[in-house]
Amino acid sequence: MSEILPAPASSATSSGSGFRRALGLVFSPTLVRILVPVLMLFLLLAVWQWYVVAHKVPPYILPSPVLVANALVKDWPILGAALVVTLKITFTALILALVGGVALAILISQSKWVELAIYPYAVILQVTPIVAISPLIIIYTPSTQVALLICAWIVAFFPVLSNTAQGLKSTDHNLLNLFELYRASRWQTLFWLRIPAALPYFLAGLRIAGGLALIAAVVAEFAAGSAGSGSGLAFRLLEAQFRLNIPRLFAALILLSVTGVLIFFATSLVSHLLLRKWHESALRREN
């Protein structure tokens, strides 16, 4: 079409959009979305390296990125083992939180009595800072590992419970009427209507719980303290601080951040895969 149109004096704008189009051919939108943050990262690292070298900042105040990378490689036997411990606690707590949260939410949705009896105490458990409860938990549990697990579970459990319970209650009333009209049993209504309708709520809870489980695993270890073979990243982080081994502290911090980001992506992916066919949140707006 464009060849047929008489070429008016719009060459300036068309060359501008032509440049943009050429850029679009070389870099697809997905590539740009990855490339821009990566470039930004390298820029920041370069500035950081330059600042540390140029101003001769001692490594126990602010280590250079190169030093941190060195620590990451050199201390990997220690940090890697600690990472495994932290991951174990995080994921065990998360899985137990999902099982417990969903089971309790279903129980609450089935009986007003259970809700009245249990929900207030779940709230109390949630609003009390975990750091404040952890000393008690450590006294009552046989090992630090179990104490950390319980702490992480308490924190991750509540968003799953409250979101799923909310979802189970938010079923479309007309659909409930429809199920009643066709004489659906309590279990048919639960499995074929309430649970699918609650899925988006549950998945929102899962994404929050995933992040919180890691945070709680770290916070609990700060509070509980642990040593020896069973110590996680939080302990290694504190230990590095005491020894003024700041490069290792940064390395442990990076491992925690990366873990958190990966958990977020994993839970987002699960959510997207389960909802992509029908839920508004997973759909592209068509306008």
Binding site: D172, N174, L175, N177, L178, L193, P196, A197, L199, K277, W278, H279
Partner: peptide, 9 residues
């Protein structure tokens, strides 16, 4: 019903 009242999933 007045609305289609379909299960979206």
């Amino acid at each position: 019903f007045q609305e289609p009242t379909l299960m979206p999933w």
